[in-house]
Structures are given as structure tokens and as C-alpha cells.
């Protein structure tokens, strides 16, 4: 049986395999597996997707479809800092869009891109659930509240 012999030549795939194992090779855990793989590599490498499809014995197109459907996933490597600016309604009416524009101007990229030096990935997201503090910006999990365009420069410099 071919599927019984494992195809983990690289240490990367071994990490992927360990993640799949943690999820008990459950087909229904596909989203959780992809989340963990993305956490590990900061994006979803193609080889990982192929490996997951093979090990869960599901068609690659299903894995690919899921990986491109959900916003949490990206097939492109991300920057060292992921800057997420909330554009939920509460942040929108308090000027979240201006914060995004300011960041775009300063970083020279458009959301949801990554700077060439792979330092920053900028993304506009729909509601981070901290609506009373809008506009909210999250950099690698750290919240910045009531952000104005003026504060952007200082925050970027502090990184």
C-alpha cells in the first residue's frame, strides 16, 4: 500500500505531518490543520497542501478550494509583521479607512500586499471585535486602539 509509506523527506513536511497527526488525520479538521500549518510557516506552502491532501486521502482540489476560500489563509509568504487594520463598521465610521491609506502611503504597498523586504504585510480586515476602541489596528497579535493617521508613523517606528 503506497499510502502507508510516508513521504516525509524534508523536515518541513515532518512538521506538517505532526500537525496532521495532532488532528487525528480527520478530514473534518482540514481547516484546523491549515490554520496550524499557516501558523508554523506564516503561509501555506504548496507542498504542504499536497501533503495534506495525500495524507487525509482527499482530493487536492478540495484542500486548494478551502485554502483559497477562507480569508485566514494565504498561499504567499507574509512579512515579519502582519498589520491588520480593522474596517468593521465602528472603525469605519471613526476613520479606519484613513489609517489604511496612511499605512499604504508609508509602506508603499496596497492592502493586502507585503513589502519587498518581507518586513510588513498590510491587510484590512472586517471587524476584530474591539469595536468600542476603534479604529483598531493589530500588529502580530498586539492591539493598538483609537489609532489616527497621525499615530501611524510612531507605531511603525516602534517596531
Amino acid at each position: 500500500m503506497e499510502s502507508a509509506t510516508l513521504l516525509t523527506e524534508s523536515p518541513e513536511l515532518e512538521k506538517v505531518e505532526a500537525i496532521i497527526e495532532k488532528h487525528h488525520y480527520e478530514e473534518s479538521a482540514l481547516i484546523g490543520i491549515l490554520q496550524d500549518v499557516q501558523k508554523e510557516f506564516n503561509y501555506l506552502p504548496g507542498t504542504a497542501l499536497k501533503h495534506i491532501a495525500r495524507q487525509l486521502a482527499i482530493p487536492l482540489n478540495r484542500v486548494y478550494n478551502v485554502a483559497t476560500f477562507y480569508r485566514a489563509f494565504t498561499l504567499k509568504p507574509r512579512g515579519k509583521y502582519t498589520i491588520s487594520v480593522c474596517l468593521g463598521t465602528a472603525c469605519h465610521v471613526r476613520g479606519g479607512k484613513k489609517v489604511v491609506e496612511e499605512l499604504e502611503r508609508r509602506l508603499g504597498i496596497k492592502a493586502p500586499d507585503t513589502t519587498d523586504d518581507r518586513k510588513f504585510t498590510l491587510q484590512a480586515v472586517n471587524c476584530l471585535g474591539a469595536c468600542a476602541l476603534g479604529p483598531v489596528m493589530v500588529i502580530n497579535g498586539e492591539y493598538h486602539s483609537k489609532v489616527s493617521p497621525k499615530m501611524v508613523e510612531k507605531i511603525l517606528k516602534s517596531l
Binding site: 472586517n126 471587524c127 471585535g129 474591539a130 469595536c131
Partner: peptide, 8 residues
């Protein structure tokens, strides 16, 4: 899956 923007 509280996705409504502005609700938390």
C-alpha cells in the same frame, strides 16, 4: 462566528 462588523 460573530462576523457582523461592529458587534462583539
Amino acid at each position: 462566528d460573530e462576523g457582523d462588523p461592529g458587534a462583539y
